[in-house]
Design a protein around this nucleic acid. Structure first.
Lengths: 213, 213
DNA sequence: CCCATTGGAAAGTGTCACTATCCAACCACG
DNA sequence: CGTGGTTGGATAGTGACACTTTCCAATGGG
């Protein structure tokens, strides 16, 4: 398959594919001649993943490159590859270092993790970008006075705990390691808009029931 | 309070505040003289909301202006104001019009809404940006072959249904209408990163339990 | 009274994801 | 042959966005 066909089959313009090749998001095709290269199904698959990460997930090009590097790094075990790839995904900026409010929130969240029984998370602590995101997001909420109490947070966390279990069950159905890591990344990113859309839809539904129209 | 103090108290640079004033995201202060204006607590509050929408929610400036217009429109009833403000928030682009895959997904989702008992959503249908987002997100998932079956989707939806109930209970504790609408918008946007961080944290936790480390 | 400060307008900046333009080598048809 | 359209690759340009910087005249505290 030449670049033009790859473009047609993926719906991505030839110019953009060239750009991805240049940026190292797509491995070069097999050179046929000085001005010709051949691409195969693996390129199409990778291109789809890249497109999804960038367009749906809003992941910056440089970050996509990082994530792919981890996905393709076969020198690591599955759990490291998966962790590295997921941790490379973009996260909101951390709370400012010396913020006393953030320190207070961190303390509260630590107890919260204990209550949830999320002990691995508690041990990893600030090493995990997800945990740092959580701290900074909750700190912002508190600062603005929309402090859903820790109780509401726990309700949210309980649901996410249940869903994470489901997600991992689904992941276990993939036998191949590379595919497992790739799927985990894709699912992590692509399910986010689904999750958010479902939340808003649910809110609209209940809002309509309560307030009419 | 003059602009400099507003800047200091909010942590937003004076230049940026001027920019927001220019863009109509912040009402002008009360003019004291030809070169002096006074700002009050309401400006500080509004500035915090704007900052949160833009920085945390990634909402484009032009969209923030739209949302604020609805929040401030006292000519409408609460439910309309709330709906209008939430619908003005950014959503992923729709699926292309003539896409047969999208049509198929739409059909499946319609049945899914029925099963969920989300009848208002089903009646509104494609009018709701959230529903259109859901269709396009799920279509992308299916296209890339990461089709969490409708069953997984239903699991997600059930949890969001429960959480939406909670959120609205919390909203009911605000007596004032303007405050209710403002809080709903802030919560819709500011809880999203919390929700996503909790999901990833839960996934890390369960992944660590299953695969070690 | 005088000079640092203020609010406001206009133009500039940095980032990011493309996109348009070239160019020489190539292949396919006549 | 040959010739005209196509291909991959390099370079430079585009447009959107969220600020920043620069400039200015009016102000007002010491």
């Amino acid at each position: 398959m030449r670049l033009a066909e790859l473009s047609e089959r993926s719906g991505v313009s030839a110019g953009t594919i060239k750009y991805y090749l240049r940026e190292g998001l797509l491995p070069p095709g097999q050179r046929i001649s000085a001005t010709q290269a051949a691409y195969d199904e693996s390129h199409l698959r990778r291109l789809n993943l890249v497109r999804a990460l960038i367009q749906i997930g809003g992941v910056p090009v440089a970050t996509v490159r990082e994530v792919l590097r981890h996905i393709d790094d076969e020198s690591l075990g599955t759990s490291f590859r998966l962790g590295a790839a997921l941790w490379a995904l973009p996260h909101p900026p951390d709370a400012p270092e010396g913020d006393p409010l953030a320190a207070e929130v961190t303390e509260g969240l630590d107890g919260f993790l204990t209550d949830m029984g999320w002990n691995h998370a508690r041990e990893l602590g600030a090493l995990s970008p997800s945990y740092r995101s959580l701290i900074s997001s909750v700190t912002t909420l508190v600062r603005l006075g929309f402090a859903g109490s820790l109780d509401v947070l726990a309700q949210y966390a309980r649901r996410m705990d249940e869903l994470a279990r489901l997600d991992l069950d689904h992941l276990d159905t993939f036998p191949d390691d590379s595919q497992k890591v790739e799927s985990a990344v894709a699912a992590a990113v692509l399910f986010e808009p689904v999750l958010l859309a479902l939340r808003r839809l649910a809110q609209e539904e209940h809002s309509a029931r309560r307030y009419g129209l």
